[in-house]
């Protein structure tokens, strides 16, 4: 079997906010259908790393290639790249003035220029995929946090992205609602979606991640299979962090 090129390829990525350097030279490849878990203490730069991947944050230096496209090149149409990279946010960021279906349909209509009927059909499928076929007419404030996050995932999936970035997708959820979101992510992985997940859900990481990346102070300290990183971390910093979240 020939090795496929990575979906996401990050080299020497640096990002500063003013005088503070948040990312200090990140190299990371994500293979097709791989689920990469990024962990690390708050302020380690993991969310910034994720947000650089679709240029919600403008990197200061380095290169990012997505599916063969240099996304930092000024000639790249960033909107065209973004519709192939799904993103799921900690606070869902659903549009409160639109129904669940409306949230999913907006980019289908405005970006992909689908007609209304086709957009409605795709939105219906996407919502069914996250187990919310019966909620298409509901507004975000009528949904639980877990349901809102699943609508947000449906919104990302409807554009048939090549990869999905998850920025602490379960951190804002009540504990009893986390399971439904993780189940959807598990289904996605089964379906072969490439995913980069910033999260502290260790149980999920152990069960589903192909690789765990530990970041601290803007650098990747250690990476490997979940059992190694969680079970036998090589670095003291990783060990300290893992012990902390296990105790939690």
């Amino acid at each position: 079997m020939t090795r496929e090129p990575p979906v996401l390829s990050i080299r020497g990525l640096r990002k500063s906010f003013g005088a503070v350097e948040v990312l200090r030279g990140i190299d990371l490849d994500v293979q097709p259908r791989e689920l990469v878990f990024v962990i690390g203490p708050s302020g380690s730069g993991k969310s910034t790393l994720l947000r650089c991947c679709n240029r919600l944050e403008e990197p200061s230096n380095g290169s990012i290639h997505f599916d063969g496209t240099d996304i930092l090149s000024p000639r790249t149409d960033i909107n065209a790249v973004r519709r192939r990279i799904g993103m799921v946010f900690q606070n869902f960021n659903l549009y409160p003035h639109m129904t669940a279906a409306g949230n999913v349909m907006l980019a289908l209509r405005q970006v992909l220029k689908k007609d209304r009927r086709e957009a409605e059909a795709i939105a219906g499928e996407a919502l069914a995929r996250v187990g919310l076929a019966d909620k298409r007419g509901a507004y975000p404030n009528e949904l639980s946090g877990g349901q809102q996050q699943r609508v947000a995932i449906a919104r990302a999936l409807a554009l048939e992205p090549k990869a999905v970035l998850f920025d602490e997708p379960t951190s804002a959820l009540d504990p009893e609602l986390v399971g439904s979101v993780l189940q959807v992510m598990r289904d996605l992985r089964q379906a072969g979606m490439t995913m980069v997940v910033v999260s502290h859900e260790m149980g999920f990481a152990r069960a589903a991640a192909d690789r765990v990346v530990f970041m601290d102070q803007g650098e990747i300290v250690e990476q490997g299979p979940p059992d190694t990183v969680f079970g036998a971390p090589r670095h003291a910093r990783t060990r300290a962090f893992v012990e902390q979240i296990v105790r939690h």
Partner: peptide, 23 residues
């Protein structure tokens, strides 16, 4: 309007103008 609204819209490929108009 929270910042995340613009980010969510832009992350789905909407241009700044369309995100402004629709979201």
């Amino acid at each position: 309007v929270p910042r995340g609204q613009m980010e969510a819209a832009r992350s789905t490929g909407l241009s700044a103008g369309r995100a402004m108009a629709w979201v």
